[in-house]
Computed example of a mutant assay.
Amino acid sequence: MYVLVMRHGEAGWHSIDQERELTEAGRKGCALVARQIARSPWRPREIWSSPLVRARQTAAIVSEILNCRVAEKPFLTPDDDPGLCLDSLLEEPPASRLMIVSHMPLVGALSTLLVDGHRHGIPFMTSQAVALDMPVVGPGCADLKAQFLP
């Protein structure tokens, strides 16, 4: 299974956290990264998205470029436990190539959990994505294969 983990695009600060929307630069950054992924062997078949506005907008942009469906998942908000996402991957196996669109600190903690088996978290820029090869779903079972930057 290939898993792409992506942080949402740049969002404005003019509203409460759950309602923050992408800026024009955020929309462009998401599209740029999606076009890079479209040319890669890690192109996803499905996207799991946080229900927060900026992540939904990011997933919609990426979905349009990559032509794949989006499913909102309630366990992908910024402060959720990455273990909930891992549990869902085990319980509800997705397509063989999945993209997860979420927020910091979750994207950093989830990527670190999948690659290194701990939850300390690595930093992610807005619109950044990483491709992980995970032959077996579990902590420390993934290898970082590629990084996509806006």
Rank of each mutant, 00 (worst) to 15 (best):
M1L: 12
M1I: 05
Y2S: 08
V5I: 14
V5G: 00
M6G: 07
H8W: 13
G9K: 11
E10S: 07
W13L: 15
W13P: 04
W13C: 13
H14P: 00
Q18L: 14
Q18D: 14
Q18I: 12
G26M: 12
R27I: 08
C30S: 14
C30R: 06
V33E: 08
A34G: 12
A34K: 09
Q36W: 14
Q36D: 13
A38H: 14
A38K: 15
S40H: 13
S40L: 11
P41M: 15
I47F: 14
S50L: 07
P51A: 06
V53D: 02
V53T: 13
R54Q: 07
R56H: 01
T58K: 09
A59D: 11
A60K: 15
I61D: 05
I61L: 10
V62T: 12
E64W: 09
E64C: 06
I65F: 06
N67H: 10
R69Q: 02
K73T: 02
F75T: 00
L76G: 02
T77R: 13
D79P: 00
D79Y: 11
D80T: 01
G83F: 00
G83N: 08
G83R: 11
D87A: 14
L89M: 10
P93K: 01
V101F: 07
V101Y: 05
S102D: 02
S102Q: 02
H103Y: 06
M104C: 05
P105Q: 06
L106A: 04
V107G: 03
A109Y: 07
L114Y: 05
V115D: 00
G117F: 06
H120C: 12
G121P: 04
I122T: 10
P123G: 07
F124G: 03
V130M: 09
A131Y: 01
D133F: 12
M134H: 05
V137Q: 11
V137N: 10
V137P: 09
L144V: 01
Q147D: 02
F148E: 08
